[in-house]
Computed example of a mutant assay.
Amino acid sequence: MNLQLKEGAGFPDRLLYLLAVIAGVSVANLYYNQPLLEMIRQDLGSTTLAANHIALFAQCGYALGLLFLIPLADLYSRRRILLTDFALLIAALLATALAPDMTTLHVSSFVIGVCSVVPQFFIPLAAQYSRPERKNRNVGIVLSGLLTGILASRVVSGAVGEWLGWREMYYIAAVLMLLSAVVIFRILPDAQPNFTGSYGALMRSLFTLVRRYPLLRLHSARAALAFGSFLCFWASLAFKMAGEPFQAGSDVVGLLGLCGVAGAVTATFCGRYIARVGIFRFNVIGAVLQLAAWGLFLAGADHYLPIIAGILLLDIGMQCIQLSNQTTLFELCPSASNRINTIFMCSYFIGGSLGTLFSGAAWTLYGWPGVVGAGALLTFASLAITLFARR
């Protein structure tokens, strides 16, 4: 495929769906660890807090990757950046599979996080080169691929961990990244850089954008807190399910991730309703759904049905908040779409890292009720920002 993209000329559907698939396969690397944390802890003879930090380092790495790598797409060839990124990612996945101790896992998880930002190169591309009437739809398709990857990652890693072992999951992931790199080399079209100047000037322009657009600050902050609430749940679920009364393994934790398919389905169609329903209402609805989920996690902590229902609500609420905040930001400054996305997603994963950190501390100190309290608090903070901004 040898395409030249032109702004506003339209985005080929074939390319769009291929990028959505690669987005899902790539972002999955960030989430393979979640069902495996208890298994890794036992294998390496570590503490639950140290095992929780595997996910924390991955989230922190992702935030830094968003901050320092994604803006490069406004300056250099996306294809060259992505091929270098895939090479580092493959090396980090192999290092994880061979890790002899928790320290090595923390370092390799951090690098995996930094290099798993591949989908965030695709989202601004779809937004910038889509026709205006199809922009939200196309961004929603790429986001759906990303979300499907997150869901599938938990199911696949849980099953592989139970059947083959946690190390084998990372060998398989390395092979998938090698195949993805080959596909990217063959299909990714050329796109004109959006910025002329040095990398230093490019990074300084991020602060200019933050100062210039109050909506960018608002949307980033409330989405980040909601995502922190979302990951607060997943960061401790493996520890919860390993205890009484469930005594479940990584395969069950992975299967619970399938409940989040509701979030992926939400992203595919709700983009077209953002203008009709309104961003404010979308954020309120999303926060209320998340709070209802935390209520179910507390009241039905020892039963599968409330947990499953809570996962459905948590995922749908998260996608209502993310999609309504992210897609509308690309209209602020189309020529800086990669940098706008960098600021939003970097804030988003800082919030996710905060939620993961809170989850580990809450579990260590107060058990599952502490995790529920931490997650609900983050959702309340997101809702408060929305209500205060409206007022």
Rank of each mutant, 00 (worst) to 15 (best):
A235I: 12
F110N: 00
A381R: 09
L329I: 13
A389V: 10
A235Y: 08
A95D: 08
A292E: 05
S250W: 10
A28Q: 00
L209D: 01
T84L: 09
T266C: 14
A292Q: 07
T148S: 12
G158C: 06
I90P: 02
Q290W: 06
G310T: 07
D251G: 13
C320F: 15
I279Q: 14
R78K: 04
G145C: 05
A9N: 10
P35V: 01
G145P: 01
M345I: 09
L377C: 14
S382V: 10
L378F: 10
A248I: 03
F195C: 06
W294L: 01
L258C: 08
L354N: 09
P193R: 13
Q4G: 08
L329F: 12
Y31R: 03
G295D: 06
M39A: 15
I172Q: 00
V372C: 10
S144G: 15
M318C: 12
I343R: 06
L215T: 05
A262Y: 07
F227I: 13
G200H: 11
D190W: 11
V253M: 04
W294M: 03
G367D: 10
G271S: 14
S157D: 02
L312W: 04
L94Q: 09
N2I: 11
V261G: 10
S144E: 05
L298P: 02
R222I: 00
I172T: 06
Y17T: 02
V182M: 09
Q290E: 06
S205P: 01
N325D: 02
L83V: 15
G286N: 06
F227G: 07
L72G: 02
A58Y: 06
M39Q: 15
G257V: 03
T96Y: 04
Y76P: 05
A95Y: 09
R79W: 03
V139I: 08
S116I: 01
T148F: 13
G149V: 07
L5N: 07
L75I: 02
W166D: 02
M241C: 08
G300A: 09
S220K: 00
V160D: 00
A235S: 15
A235N: 15
H219K: 13
L82I: 01
R281T: 13
G370H: 10
V265F: 13
L312T: 05
P12G: 06
A152P: 00
I40V: 15
Y76F: 05
Q192K: 15
A92F: 12
R80E: 01
G367L: 12
G370T: 11
I90C: 02
Q4V: 15
L329A: 11
F122Q: 03
L357Y: 13
F195D: 03
H106F: 14
F280C: 08
N29R: 05
Q120F: 13
N29D: 08
R186C: 12
G61M: 07
D190Q: 14
S180Q: 04
W166F: 11
G355N: 11
D190F: 13
S324C: 05
A99K: 03
G295E: 09
